[in-house]
Amino acid sequence: MKVSVHNIRIIILSILAVSVLAMAPAISEAASFVPTRPIEFVCFASPGGGSGIFAETVGGIMEKEKIVPVPMPRIYKSGGGFAVGMAYLAEKKGNPHFLGSTANPFILTPLVVTASGKKTILHKDFTQIAILAFDEMAVVVKYDAPYKNLKDLIAAAKTKAKSIKFGGTNVGGTDSLLVASLAKAAGVEFNYIAFQGGGEVNAALLGGHIDAMSANPTEMLPQIEGKTMRMLAVASEKRLSGSDFKDLPTMKELGFNVIFNTHRGITAPAGISAEAVAYYENAFKKLSENDTFKKYIADNNMTPTYMNSVQATKYMNDFADYANGLLKDLGIAKK
């Protein structure tokens, strides 16, 4: 068969026409993004802990209340203090059908790895979508310990450097930074002892092997009621709203200017479109106004908030600067 120039022109034109038609949905999608495939919601920690419960609750409500029109399966990629999951999500560059749930290690782990002189994926390598709440932290001692309030504990720490054994999770993690903040504000030096996880710290405190620990106030409530532990102060801006905590002072009102907590937020891979960011900002705004979500926040005595993409990014950058200073105090980052 002879192919004339005319025929070729027709073929090219028809190919062009077909491709324009094929691109049309893509163009309209870019104008206003709506997820068309299930959204993989990556949790960087294992299920069952604070981060796991947050991801499960958020994903569950998003699906049930049809805030997103597609399923939002929770994918757990734990290990390496968030690093494994962050590496996984970072690979999905530009793909708006992946989201991640963030907390402090999202910022802290990369800081610590960077401090050791290695390159790693930072929180800045993602598109922040929102911050939805803050999980507060408290200082807890054994019920029959000689320290009945925070001033007792600080006074004891002042008599001899490193005389108070403070337990928590890994150095460079949220617990250790809270302790560093408090030490700085009170002008004392604690003996910080790192444990594998919250369970081990609790056991060590109850066994009298350490003097104090930092913990999530709600998780410790049963121990307070059972008179096995005593909560001394919370590192939040204002007193916690729950009725169980109305007598629990903040560190600030006791004269120690320490506000330290862990954020609960949503992130996405780098390079997703502005429309996708706007879509998700709006979706998570709806979530933050949802009654089931509000109840979860209240039940866990978290501080509710809503920060959009820009605010969340600024919050995280500021937090990273502040934490870096504390890491220097802890001797991790170089001064």
Binding site: V112, V113, S116, L330, I332
Partner: peptide, 10 residues
């Protein structure tokens, strides 16, 4: 190998 919990460093 791993994240050293005491120095906080890999």
């Amino acid at each position: 190998p791993g994240m050293d919990a005491f120095s906080g460093l890999p």
